[in-house]
Design a binder for these strands. Structure first.
Lengths: 158, 158
DNA sequence: ATGATTGCAAAAGCTTTGCAGCTTG
DNA sequence: CAAGCTGCAAAGCTTTTGCAATCAT
């Protein structure tokens, strides 16, 4: 068995994982949905619909932009993706579903995930001690706004 | 001096305050800007451009929608307003400039201000103890997402 | 006086919609 | 087979743009 065969097995395993996810979410499994979900899961930059469309269209010229819109929206409604809006009102899609904050770099238009369990606990326990009336809280997230100093390098908070 | 005269004085004082704000921000003082800024300051519901336009147009039919767009954008750039985007990517304008969070009620599309000094300090000191590299942080805000239970009543956290 | 601002209308995005034909379960 | 999904093109929004006329300083 050569390296290529291994690759094919890994790929097919990964697709079956994706098919399961789609199916379990209650949606029908179509070629378009597999391609789109697979793509968003591999992009870690919170893509826009246009980004997703651009990144799939060479290999899948028949998938239309409208389908990408409908598909990501279906994924959001069925809990496979979450939707993030930039400070400029542009919609981006995020495959990470656990509670996390975002760093918005206005000079590079990047959205970077920010996970910190300690911070999450701190905020959660803060609100546990508050009396919240007439609101059913779904989630609480932190938004860190700033500018990247060197646009080429990564941002790190630790 | 009757009640009406008092009212007129209060109004004119309030306009001169608004004129000063516009002028100090570096923008020229025009009728349109006075009306628009005055309106946004009085609306406490984070209006959209369309909301602002609707709310001024009966008394000021000559102010065009395009001018409202240009004006609020100028206000944001000159530090008189801040811009908030909803989870659906709609832009709203906020006259409150000090650091505060927002409660997003998805069932009523309301954005409610949330001030808490203790929380602000907590978050600030949390990040003071972190090493942040390659990012110039401008501000950190909290976003509380939820649904209003009774849409008619107010939300309260205390 | 001159540089900024306005109104208007057109254009540019971005997203949704309607529907006929096709596919999935 | 029925319900759901796709592709296409048109329509619907929101926002920006270009420019001549007007206004603020």
């Amino acid at each position: 068995m050569d390296n290529y065969s291994y690759l094919r097995i890994i790929l097919s395993l990964s697709y079956s994982h994706i098919k399961d996810k789609i199916s379990e979410s209650g949606l029908k499994v179509t070629h378009q949905r597999i391609v789109i979900l697979n793509t968003v899961l591999q992009m870690d930059n919170h893509p826009t619909v246009e980004h997703i469309y651009e990144s799939i269209k060479d290999a899948n010229p028949s998938i239309s932009l409208g389908t990408v819109y409908k598909t990501v929206e279906a994924f959001v409604n069925n809990g496979l993706l979450s939707k993030v809006s930039t400070n400029e009102g542009q919609m981006r899609y995020d495959p990470k579903l656990d509670n996390h904050g975002h760093i918005y770099c206005s000079n590079t238009s990047e959205i970077i995930d920010y996970f910190d369990d300690e911070l999450n606990d701190m905020i959660l326990s803060f609100f546990k001690n508050k009396r919240v009336s007439n609101l059913k809280i779904k989630n609480i997230t932190l938004q860190i706004n700033g500018d990247k100093i060197d646009p080429e390098k990564d941002v790190l908070i630790k």
